[in-house]
Computed example of a mutant assay.
Amino acid sequence: MRSALVIGTGLIGTSVALALSARGVRVHLEDRDPEQVRTAAALGAGTEAPPDGPVDLAVVSVPPALTAPVLADAVRREAARGYLDVASVKGRPRRELADLGCDTTRYLGSHPMAGRERSGPLAATAELFEGRPWVLTPTAGTDTEVLNLALELVALCRAVPVVMDADAHDRAVALVSHTPQLLSSLVAARLAEAGEAAVRLCGQGIRDVTRIAASDPAMWVDILSANPGPVADVLAEVAADLDETVRALRALESADEHKRAGGAAGIEAVLRRGNAGRARVPGKHGAAPAAYETVAVLISDRPGELARIFADAGRAGVNVEDVRIEHATGQQAGLVQLMVQPAVAPVLTAALRERGWSIRQ
Results as ranks from 00 to 15, higher is better:
residue 93 P to M: 09
residue 37 V to E: 09
residue 121 P to H: 04
residue 40 A to D: 11
residue 100 L to P: 02
residue 120 G to H: 03
residue 176 V to P: 11
residue 109 G to Q: 10
residue 161 P to S: 09
residue 55 V to K: 07
residue 101 G to E: 10
residue 135 V to M: 07
residue 153 L to I: 08
residue 163 V to D: 10
residue 114 A to V: 09
residue 95 R to Y: 01
residue 78 E to Y: 00
residue 79 A to K: 07
residue 100 L to H: 03
residue 66 L to H: 13
residue 65 A to C: 08
residue 116 R to N: 05
residue 57 L to H: 14
residue 174 A to K: 09
residue 103 D to P: 11
residue 116 R to I: 00
residue 98 A to L: 13
residue 55 V to I: 09
residue 123 A to D: 08
residue 160 V to E: 15
residue 148 N to M: 06
residue 129 F to K: 01
residue 168 A to N: 05
residue 144 T to R: 15
residue 148 N to Q: 13
residue 153 L to A: 11
residue 88 S to Q: 08
residue 37 V to R: 11
residue 138 P to H: 04
residue 65 A to T: 11
residue 176 V to W: 08
residue 64 P to D: 12
residue 160 V to R: 15
residue 47 T to S: 15
residue 58 A to T: 15
residue 89 V to C: 09
residue 168 A to L: 12
residue 67 T to E: 04
residue 105 T to N: 07
residue 70 V to Y: 12
residue 43 L to D: 09
residue 93 P to Q: 10
residue 145 E to F: 04
residue 171 R to Y: 08
residue 99 D to V: 00
residue 124 A to D: 12
residue 95 R to C: 02
residue 119 S to I: 08
residue 112 P to F: 06
residue 102 C to N: 05
residue 64 P to S: 12
residue 72 A to V: 04
residue 43 L to P: 08
residue 38 R to W: 02
residue 113 M to N: 12
residue 60 V to Q: 01
residue 100 L to C: 02
residue 54 P to H: 05
residue 113 M to E: 13
residue 141 G to V: 00
residue 68 A to H: 05
residue 162 V to A: 11
residue 164 M to V: 05
residue 165 D to R: 08
residue 70 V to S: 12
residue 152 E to M: 07
residue 137 T to F: 01
residue 138 P to L: 03
residue 147 L to H: 06
residue 71 L to P: 01
residue 75 V to E: 13
residue 176 V to R: 06
residue 179 T to N: 07
residue 130 E to H: 14
residue 135 V to I: 15
residue 66 L to D: 15
residue 176 V to C: 07
residue 60 V to E: 01
residue 64 P to A: 10
residue 173 V to E: 14
residue 111 H to N: 14
residue 34 P to H: 02
residue 178 H to Q: 15
residue 176 V to I: 15
residue 124 A to R: 02
residue 95 R to V: 07
residue 87 A to D: 06
residue 169 H to W: 07
residue 49 A to C: 01
residue 152 E to Q: 15
residue 46 G to A: 00
residue 83 Y to D: 13
residue 106 R to W: 03
residue 51 P to E: 09
